[in-house]
Nucleic acid binder design. Structure first.
Lengths: 330, 330
DNA sequence: CTGAAAGCGCTTACAG
DNA sequence: CTGAAAGCGCTTACAG
């Protein structure tokens, strides 16, 4: 690899001048600029971002931190992050954190300019990032305080409520819920509860299956659904807290010999690319992962460049496909 | 962030000594070592890997380069890569390349120690990585020459052949194929052709649907399947060149009002995590993505550490699930 | 065993 | 407009 030194020597200028043309500083004669550019091309010179970042403290790279790369919701988010980052000359990468502080340190050591994540960082991680002065941007955070961090916040409670209303209007009265146990009294569940109250549906803890894993979510969804079915509650529909969970639920229904939506309706949340290709195609709430990725990344970069860290609220819309049956409620 | 200088000052030693204890060099008294370690802990000092890599030329990070993060096969590979890399003290990340040389340069500028990929790099990318002296390791490459690069090579032709034999034994005689158009006369198709010859099945170009995208592969699979069905060939089974494609095929069959496997059998290739949760669960060939990731990463790191670049051959095994019907062949 | 010094590839005030 | 010099946080022969 040619270095800036080689370029300077061959072009007969100082390294400072090479820096100036590389960085587009204007204080260079057209003539020298051209000469330098020629040499750069000739030597196939690529500036060393690592060295620059040591000097400037900016690495022009942002990391999307996840716990389960295997979840397509993250991949879709990442595509948006990536495209936006590239537009700004940044590199964007996915990094698996796996709930291990050591892995977070490993990332921080590498001087990323900012972190985007869908996770809720624990106290120690928040302090780790703060210590290293790395800004964090949350995507999909609930509408709670985000502290120093920026966020695209999603009102999961409202989404859950909307979905319940939707099912109610389709004639469903006995509805199950599959959700993350660790957020028991928050988000979608809160919407579920509110809807029950408002729509005068009796609330029954038994109608809910909590799962609790960060591993393969489809499997969690499938187990939860089996569990729900085994309780024999006469449920006519199930709300899943994500499409990826719903894919698991679909599978459990199939294995139980149930036809969706004829025997039971299932709805998800996210609208993944895959959700139009399940059997049957999934009715769900669209959250625009790709666009969220772009927007979140744009906000983070703007902050890195010196602006304040923004927080913005988001809403989803129901997309109807083939996994809900309209019941005759007479 | 505390730097090595702060540590040196507070511990009353030179920065060289701090380096030596950080890097575990033995030439330090137990007493000074302890003193330095104390200060490190006290200051919460984290060595700057970026600065070190400028000096040593090793960044202890390896990149898994993909074109479509959205494909779960890659995520599963990455998990293996990641776990293995971490065991060696390396960081592993996913990077989207998107067939754009500019993106490759962006990655190379950041001094990764090595690249793992499932893609076939084009000439210009091969020369880009060579220029920057970044070793490349291919996973899932066919059994062709890999040049300077290391590889885990998979015999796709054999796998295609095996799958055909399997279907033949189940009584299928009129079998379709969905595969990548850009490798028309290679891999799985070669196995398909060979099987036709050996099993005395007439080979018909019409039985094959080529697709040609790097975008959302499920969609490609779905279109290809629709295309195949629209040709009215009386096909009883379809071989897909990956499970993710098969998921699309499953969807197209469903939309055409066909039941799998009763009306038509569909098989995939890879054995993704999701493949046990499709409707119906997919019969496929297992390629052990996670293990391949680990193994490939181990081989790459061994090369980075000075050993020669290895090439190893892999085989898959059929896993039977619910997407193939046994026909009565009398 | 330990330190002073040079250097990795860059940037950026400071002079001129 | 351009160059010499210092410095980003590290490592590593070279002395002692």
């Amino acid at each position: 690899m040619a270095t800036r030194n080689d370029v300077a020597r061959l072009a007969g200028v100082s390294t400072a001048t090479v820096s100036r043309v590389v960085n587009g500083s204007s204080k260079v004669t057209d003539e020298t600029r051209e000469r330098v550019l020629d040499v750069i091309k000739q030597l196939n010179y690529v500036p060393n971002v690592i060295a620059r970042s040591l000097r400037t403290k900016f690495s022009y790279t942002i990391a999307f931190v996840v716990n389960d790369v295997t979840n397509p919701f993250f991949s879709e988010l990442y595509r948006g992050i990536c495209d936006e980052a590239n537009d700004y000359g940044y590199a964007a990468l996915i990094y698996q954190y796996d709930d291990d502080p050591k892995n977070m340190t490993r990332l921080l050591e590498r001087n990323v300019d900012g972190i985007i994540t869908f996770l809720r960082f624990s106290e120690d991680i928040v302090s780790l990032t703060a210590q290293s002065n790395t800004p964090v941007f949350y995507i999909g955070k609930e509408r709670e305080d985000t502290g120093e961090a920026g966020a695209l916040r999603f009102d999961f409670a409202e989404a859950g409520y909307d979905m319940m209303r939707y099912l109610y209007e389709k004639g469903h009265r006995n509805i199950g819920l599959i959700a993350r146990g660790t957020r028991k009294y928050q988000d979608i569940h809160a919407g579920y509860v509110k809807a029950c109250k408002e729509l005068d549906i009796p609330y029954n803890e038994n109608n809910i299956a909590w799962f609790d894993s960060n591993k393969f979510i489809v499997e969690s969804g499938s187990s939860a659904m089996s569990e729900l079915l085994s309780r024999n509650l006469g449920i006519s529909a199930v709300v899943c807290n994500s499409d990826w969970v719903a894919v698991g639920a679909l599978s459990a229904a199939y294995n139980a010999g149930l036809k969706v939506p004829d025997d039971i309706s299932i709805v998800g949340f996210d609208d993944l690319l895959i959700s139009a290709y399940t059997t049957p195609p999934l009715t769900t709430i669209k959250t625009e992962g790709y666009e969220e990725g772009r927007l979140g990344c744009k906000m983070l970069i703007s902050h890195i460049q010196g602006n304040s860290m923004p927080v913005q609220d988001l809403k989803g819309t129901i997309v109807e496909r083939g996994s809900v049956k309209t019941l005759n409620t007479k």
